[in-house]
């Protein structure tokens, strides 16, 4: 049984269908990339899984149970963390407050939150000196690290990440992906990743799905990076 299963799921914005009859699996401990051009429906799919959109048709299951519809905080507490496009930094709060908000949202007390923060700081040591800084004043790369840290603080089973490299310098993008791979390897975190950089995504992922105009046009493993990149590029361009 896959950790996350989408079965014939469609999402609409009013009368417009953004994603049509999408079926997709994320296996435990795997990194899955969802690729496609702008407007293909990638971000819509992640938003829908996170509970921000209600599916018009189909079924979304997590660990075999249906995910609650339109109940964002419940989905998060079930173990699905979502880093949206644009990062979702609470810019007026300090880094520590951002992290504590995630911990308190999951019902941890201050002591438990401290333990978890210390744990994730091992993956993101550069952030440890920024704990009292307002999150909105950090650089884009630091913000991305902070939101990944915040998302993994509560030990989610699945991480949904929307374009983690958007607006970052290539060297920073590489560092962000290294962190994702490290979290996947060390903590067994499953990841569903939306990305526009095909090559980077294929290098990182175990499995790839390609969307075109809201419909699934290709899915397969990423065993051969070069061949998969070429194949995906024929759809994505």
């Amino acid at each position: 049984m896959a950790l996350l299963e989408l079965d014939q799921v469609s999402f609409n914005y009013g009368p417009i269908t953004a994603v049509r009859d999408l079926s997709l699996d994320v296996e435990e401990g795997k990194i899955v990339a969802l690729l496609g051009r702008n407007g293909a429906g990638k971000s819509t799919t992640l938003s829908g899984i996170a509970g921000l959109l209600k599916p018009r048709t189909g079924r979304i299951s997590f660990e075999g149970n249906p995910l609650p519809r339109s109940q964002v905080s419940r989905v998060a507490r079930m173990g699905v963390a979502y880093v949206p496009e644009g990062r979702g930094v609470l810019g007026g709060l300090t880094v520590e407050e951002n992290l504590n908000a995630a911990a308190f949202g999951h019902g941890l007390d201050r002591r438990e939150a401290r333990i978890e923060i210390d744990r994730v700081l091992e993956h993101f040591p550069a952030i440890s000196s920024r704990m009292n800084q307002r999150a909105g004043t950090m650089s884009g790369g630091e913000q991305q690290m902070m939101v990944l840290m915040r998302a993994t603080l509560t030990r989610p089973r699945l991480l949904l990440v929307d374009e983690p490299g958007l607006g970052l310098a290539p060297i920073i993008v590489r560092a962000v992906y290294d962190q994702l791979i490290e979290l996947n390897r060390d903590e067994g975190l499953s990841v569903l990743l939306v990305e526009q950089y095909v090559e980077l995504a294929v290098e990182t992922a175990d499995q790839v799905y390609v969307l075109q105009k809201g419909e699934l046009v290709h899915s397969g493993p990423c065993s051969d990076v070069e061949a998969t990149t070429d194949l995906v590029a024929t759809y994505v361009g």
Partner: peptide, 21 residues
Amino acid sequence: RRGLLTRAMAEDETVTQLLGV
């Protein structure tokens, strides 16, 4: 704790809900 969650919600309702609040 509740005060922090209140400030987080005031800052960005959607993001705060994504944190499980």
